[in-house]
Amino acid sequence: MVNDSNAESYLSPFSCSFCRGCFEHFLDGTYDFLNGFIASDGCLQPQRVYDNWKNYLKREDDFCYQFNTPRVYDEAALGMYRQELADLKHAVERWANYVTNDKLIEAIKVYNETRRLLRELYALRKGDAPLVTGEECLRITLASMSMRKDTFNELLSAFLEEARQREPITDYRARLMLIGSSCDSPEYLKIFEDKGGLFVTDVNCYGSRYLYDDVEIDEKDPLAGIARSYLARPVCGRMCNLHHELRDTILEMAKEYNVEGVVYTKMKNCDMWGGESFFLDDAIRDAGLSLLILEREEITANAGQVGIRAEAFVEMIETGGAD
């Protein structure tokens, strides 16, 4: 994204630039191929996008829906989440076609196959000589979220076969992990990788979220299975009673992938990942990992400034300066 000035007329410059970017693409026609938009209230900002999107809907019969997501994990929240999924299902049925249990179970199986393949993709990054860069991996996971999963599964299977025959990457200087606010910008990762860093894993909405356990198939009530699987994942800073689980997930993943440095990006004005610092910063340093905290905006206009921080961070890891 290079410009979000149109969206700034609707959403304050003090809002999340990722959300502004989404609305900019609605305004500039990039998203005209979409027939529907579902916003979740994981944080406040997508709600404002929903308000504007609904108000300026381009075609009368387009689908526009606000999905409410719990911010705690407990029995009551599970019930509420299950109900929200049922409401969404009914809304989709009113707009398009019936969503039967059989169709849901079939879709869960296809999605679980995506998860299995993405786990294989991430496994290619574990060893001393990884086969894919972080930038490439993010491009692949982004594709998984913007195309039909069955088509994606075929393409990823072919890619994995090809990738296993590649020359491994051995000329990197530091093994990095990306955490923090949603990052859908492979270019951002490339800034670090051009400076000698190599992202080997992440805890990022657009990256490793599919790595978690398969969604359980509840034959009688597939929506309940989806609710249980999704809500228990310690993947999002919005979950008020899963902070320690999120921290542990990050540390375990760092260990599993032999990470040396964590790049913690916070979207400017992101309350959730901004506040998560309280739970994460010391824990990451105490685990012997180097930590770089950077504020980010969806528009990568300061690549040079990020570059110098990236280069210095790689040097810091390389010279063994971490505590």
Partner: peptide, 16 residues
Amino acid sequence: HCDERGRVTSFMMNDK
């Protein structure tokens, strides 16, 4: 922040 050999252990820059 650095150690006794002048090796960087953490840093922060002003933004923009």
